[in-house]
Structures are given as structure tokens and as C-alpha cells.
Design a protein around this nucleic acid. Structure first.
Lengths: 235, 235
DNA sequence: CGAGCCATTGAGCGCGCTCAAATCCCGTGG
DNA sequence: CCACGGGATTTGAGCGCGCTCAATGGCTCG
């Protein structure tokens, strides 16, 4: 049981949801103070180092998770053993929605790409709260729809067109709107997201750097030339 | 308003849900006879010819649909105008789940690939029924999860690997388990599903035919050599 | 300081794309 | 019933992008 050992090591305490700085943007935004008092099960927090598994494909889905900070990848494996990254999740996103359906297993492996902070709560309490709380209920559905939109966008934006286009679109999807900053990850992961090889990912990124489309502030931390990347992305 | 004209022409009557032959496998399986009596809005049936739009991207999502027979594609368009098919839906599948969220537009265009029979019902009645009926509610969530699994599989199975592999996987996904039969569609659509060109789709299918992996019973109706296609699909 | 991992770069090849032509299929109208 | 026309499918030829295999260089950590 690699998972539980890992998570035990990563445990950083019980969460204080009522005073959570993310509360207004997170799944439980619609809950009242009274609702929280009905939650007797613990909500735990974890710190994940890059590369750590949060859960594996097929693990019994008994918890749901929210991302407080960081990025994780959701991975599926092909019969030949290679991996394909089907989505990434970031701050305020929810992992493990499938736990809403009792008896399900997780459909992906969830692995931290950068150092991440995660809150974990039993799916059972979400099921119970959702039954009586229409607002939470609506929020859950909206999350599902968002995941579906992400999945579709992943297909149309990140698995279509030339390697140059795909990389440009990925960068634009990762960029922080304010500062034109973007934190990248290993070339292998970039390749697995875009359906290209590690070498092609590396070559293309290196070329972008030479062309001044991205400047590396520190390791894998880039400042992007957004307008020109947009031009490449759209054709 | 191409859509409404088209649909008006295709109208084939009001549905008789209580006696529907699909009732046990369809979204409303959990509804009681009493529930149906509370439905005052009409549930209409349509017959769609191949190529007909059921709805377009961005149309106000006010109805949901179930497929009684046939196949439809869900399409998204890229900035350069080319299309990408992100999913297909078949008998007993639901279209337009996004209508559960008020004020949403449809995320795709839905277009019939073969002649299809469709039931259409106002999303409002689903929202109302779901609020009081946990079984319907659970069923909706299960549908959402299924759509998400489909989207992920589309990415890992149909957008990864060589053209031969992708075509083989598509065929196996379409095959009827009983008779090893499979009804295909235009090479252009096959290409748009797999992220390859029409010509490559055509070439590969033609080669499969020559190799005896598929025999054409009638136009686009094939009998498959399932075991050997499985071998190709898995590498 | 050495070991190991990761990014980068090189060389060569093959799959799938592009552009184009030929053929087939099928409905339509004479 | 057959000739015709238009669209889809198939096939061809040639090229280029991205893959494969391999070597090199840079960075981190023990």
C-alpha cells in the first residue's frame, strides 16, 4: 500500500474549513455554518511532493479532494504500458467526483506535478449533504460539467494540430493571466499531455526559447510572449 | 433558424413514455407512474435523417434528448474551421445533459450519422423531478460519469497510437457483440473522430478489407474479424 | 567529486499529410 | 431502362513532420 504510507507521511493536520481562505471558491461555498457542524468526520490536509500519488486507478473511491495549491495530473495507462495524461487539476478544483457513485473505483491515477496542498474528505458526507442541500448539489453538477468541458477541450485543443500548435495552446492554458508567467513541468509529462514524444516536446520548447517566445526566469518558470503564442496556436 | 424547421419536419408525434420499450434502460427508469402524470409538458419524438442537426454549438440548452435508435456525433469546431468529433451517442444514451444547468448553451453540435429516432423533453421537468426523486438524481450523476469516461477513453484509445491501431479500436468500439457486425460511416467522419485525414482513414480501411479483417456485407455494413483486430488494437 | 537524471541535440527514416487523379456509387431525370 | 452528374471512396506520388535510436551536456544531490 504505497498510497496510504505516502499520504500518512504527507499528513499536515486537520483542516479548518470555516476559516479556509478558499472557502468562497470551493465546492462547499454554499454550506452554512450549521452544515459544517454536522460534519463529524475529519477533513484532512496533505502536502504532496512532486511525483507523489494521491490515488491509483481502481482504488476504491471513498474520498474526494480539493486542491488548495499546486497542480496534479490525471493519468490513464494504455495496454502497452505508456501513459496518457487526460486532464490536470489546479487550485480550487475537485478530484474524485466519481466517489459520488457508491462502489466506484477511481478512473485515473492522480499524481502531483508540483508541490501541492490537498484537502481530503469522505465522499459519504458529500453524498449526505448533497441530498438535503440544493446549492451543493448544483455545485457538484457544475463541477461535473466543467470536468467534461475540460476533457473535450483537451481533445480539440491539445490533441489536434502540429506539435508547435499544441505546445503553444498548452502554454496559453497554463499561463497566469496577470503576469504572463507559467510554470512548466518535465518534457515527458508535456509529451504525455499532447500525444507527442518527449524529444519533440523538448525540441519545440527549446526552439520557442530561442525565438524569444518564452524566457526562462528560473527552472521551468517562464515568462511568455502571449500575443505571438496565440498567433501560433490559432494556425 | 434551420434547426427548428428541420425538427418540425422530423416530428413524428408525442411519446408514450409509460409504454416505451426502452423505459427500463433509459434515464427515467426510476420514475413511478405517478411521476409521469406530473409531466404536463409534451415529450416529442423525432426521426432524423443522416446529416441532420439536432442542435448547434451555443444554442440555448432547454431540452434534453434520449436516443431511441441510431447514432449521432457530438462535434466541436476549431478556430481554423475544421471539425473534431469528441464523442458519439447511441441507443439509450442521453444528449444535452448540460441543460441541467440553467442558462447554459449546448457545448457541441449534435448531428445524426445514421437515421435516428430521438425523444425530446424540456430540461425543466428533469430539474424538477430530480429535486424530489433521488433515483433519477443518482441516474443523472451516473450519466455524467459515463460521459466523462467516454471522453477520457476517446482520448486514450482513439487519439493515441498509429492510424491502424486507432481504426481497429474504433471498429471494436462500434461492433455489436453478438454478430461481429458494425455499421460504419463516412471516411471524413472516421478521420474527424481519430484525428487523422480522410485519405488515411480510407487507405487504412481499404487495406483492412483486403487483409480480410473486415468484410463488407452492404454499404458501410461490415463483419469484423474481432480477434485479429484486437491484436492490432493492442499493439 | 562522482552518479544519475533530465534536457537538448543529431542523424536518418517512415508514417501520415498534401495535392491530385481515377473510379465507384447512387439517385435523378430523360 | 439507361444516361448523366455529383459526391464519396480509393489510389498514386512525393514530401515533411515527428518518431526512433543514440550521444552529449547540464544540473542536483548524495
Amino acid at each position: 500500500m504505497v498510497k496510504s504510507v505516502t499520504l500518512r507521511e504527507a499528513w499536515s493536520g486537520e483542516a479548518d474549513c470555516l476559516n479556509c481562505s478558499l472557502r468562497t471558491s470551493v465546492l462547499f461555498a454554499g454550506l452554512s455554518e450549521a452544515d459544517f457542524q454536522h460534519i463529524h468526520d475529519p477533513i484532512d490536509q496533505f502536502n504532496l511532493k512532486p511525483g507523489t500519488h494521491l490515488y491509483h486507478v481502481g482504488d476504491a473511491a471513498e474520498h474526494m479532494f480539493t486542491v488548495r495549491s499546486g497542480i496534479l495530473k490525471l493519468v490513464q495507462y494504455l495496454p502497452d504500458g505508456s501513459q496518457r495524461i487526460v486532464r490536470i487539476v489546479r487550485t480550487t478544483d475537485v478530484l474524485g467526483l466519481e466517489a459520488m457513485l457508491e462502489g466506484m473505483g477511481y478512473q485515473h491515477a492522480a499524481i502531483a506535478l508540483h508541490a501541492s496542498e490537498i484537502c481530503r474528505f469522505p465522499a459519504r458526507i458529500v453524498r449526505e449533504l448533497a441530498a438535503s442541500n440544493p446549492e451543493l448539489h448544483r455545485e457538484l453538477i457544475a463541477r461535473w460539467q466543467r470536468a467534461l468541458n475540460e476533457a473535450d477541450a483537451w481533445l480539440t485543443e491539445l490533441s489536434t494540430g502540429s506539435a508547435r500548435q499544441r505546445i503553444a495552446r498548452l502554454l496559453l492554458r497554463l499561463v497566469d493571466g496577470e503576469r504572463d508567467q507559467c510554470q512548466l513541468f518535465s518534457r515527458e509529462d508535456v509529451g504525455a499531455m499532447l500525444g507527442i514524444t518527449t524529444e519533440t516536446a523538448s525540441r519545440t520548447i527549446a526552439e520557442f526559447k530561442r525565438q524569444g517566445l518564452m524566457r526562462e526566469a528560473s527552472t521551468n518558470q517562464f515568462t511568455l510572449d502571449v500575443p505571438n503564442l496565440k498567433r501560433i496556436a490559432e494556425e
